[in-house]
Simulated scan of single mutants.
Amino acid sequence: MLSCATIRTTTVPQSGEELSRQDIHLQIRYTFPQEALRLLRQSGFEVMHTYGGWKKEPLTSASPEMIFICRKAG
């Protein structure tokens, strides 16, 4: 499991005064395509399309990303 932390701040451009701060902590666990499909179906989703990238490339073992287009079944 991978842990990530992001800090997002909003500041006033002229003075640099901080208006807001948001700390975001994520736990990321990578999955294989077959596991992702199983988890989506178990959660009640119908998988419409799968892609290996945002340009709708086929999902292969060399794909840099996994994109699933789903809709809630039922």
Rank of each mutant, 00 (worst) to 15 (best):
T60G: 04
V47E: 03
Q22H: 10
E65M: 10
L59T: 05
T60R: 10
C4M: 13
F45L: 11
F32K: 10
I69H: 07
P64E: 15
G52S: 06
T9G: 00
Q14D: 14
H49C: 09
Q34I: 06
R71A: 12
S43K: 08
I7F: 07
Y51M: 09
I7R: 13
G52A: 10
S15P: 07
F68N: 04
G53T: 09
T6D: 14
P33V: 03
R71K: 15
Q14V: 09
I28D: 00
E46C: 08
R8I: 15
K55R: 14
C70R: 02
E35L: 03
T9K: 14
Y30E: 13
P58H: 00
Y30M: 08
L59Y: 05
C4K: 13
Y30A: 10
E18K: 09
L59K: 03
R21H: 06
I28V: 15
G16F: 02
E57D: 13
Q22W: 03
R8V: 15
I69C: 07
R8W: 09
K72C: 05
M1N: 08
Q27A: 13
W54D: 01
M48C: 04
H49F: 13
G53K: 04
I69E: 15
T10G: 00
Q22V: 14
S3H: 14
L19A: 03
E18T: 13
G44V: 11
T31M: 10
L19R: 07
P58I: 01
A5W: 07
K72T: 06
G53S: 14
T11H: 06
I28M: 11
P13Q: 08
A36R: 06
S63D: 06
T11K: 10
E17A: 08
L26R: 00
R21F: 01
I67M: 08
A36T: 15
R38V: 04
T10M: 12
M66H: 12
R71W: 08
T31G: 02
Q27S: 12
R38F: 06
M1D: 10
T9E: 15
M66P: 00
P33M: 01
R38E: 14
T9V: 15
L19Y: 05
Y30Q: 09
E46F: 04
Y30S: 07
T60Y: 11
S20A: 15
L39W: 11
Q22N: 11
F45H: 02
G53Q: 01
R8G: 01
D23W: 06
E46H: 12
Q14N: 03
L39T: 06
S61P: 00
D23H: 11
P64D: 13
E65L: 10
Y30R: 10
T6H: 12
T9Q: 15
A5M: 12
T31S: 02
C70A: 10
L26P: 02
T50D: 05
L19T: 05
Y51D: 08
P13L: 12
E65D: 13
T50C: 05
Q34T: 12
M1E: 12
Y51I: 08
W54P: 02
G52E: 07
R38T: 07
Q14C: 01
T10N: 10
R29T: 15
S43Q: 09
E57F: 01
T9I: 14
E65C: 03
Y51K: 06
R38G: 03
V47N: 01
